[in-house]
């Protein structure tokens, strides 16, 4: 049963990632693209966690944690760049 649920989840998240890619391409503004990339990072975190379940190992946890932190920091840096035209002042 879990295998089927995982197959469904992998296809759903892949579809979600394709939609995010479309949002990145379409834009129209920088901020729409930043939001799309932020959502993409969140989808990738879920994908990594599910991959960990399907491989029956917890070693991918750290990768997901680093994606969570990195995604947050990069989104804030992009937004700050739009706000101030500079990241580190």
């Amino acid at each position: 049963m879990i295998e089927h649920a995982l197959t469904f989840a992998f296809s759903a998240i892949s579809l979600a990632l394709l939609m995010n890619l479309w949002s990145v391409v379409r834009g129209p503004s920088i901020l729409d693209r930043v939001l799309a990339i932020d959502t993409m990072v969140i989808n990738v975190i879920a994908l990594i966690i599910l991959y960990g379940i399907s491989e029956r190992t917890p070693v991918y946890f750290e990768a997901a944690l680093i994606f969570a932190m990195f995604g947050f920091v990069s989104t804030v840096a992009y937004a700050k760049f739009v706000l101030r035209g500079d990241i580190i002042e």
Partner: peptide, 29 residues
């Protein structure tokens, strides 16, 4: 236990899909 895990996986995946779909569907930022 299998049913609970499968249900949680499916709920999570559906919400992620809906979130990404909403970003395409909504008109402005």
């Amino acid at each position: 236990a299998e049913a609970i895990v499968s249900a949680l996986i499916i709920i999570g995946a559906v919400f992620l899909l809906v979130g990404s779909w909403g970003m395409i569907r909504m008109p402005e930022l």
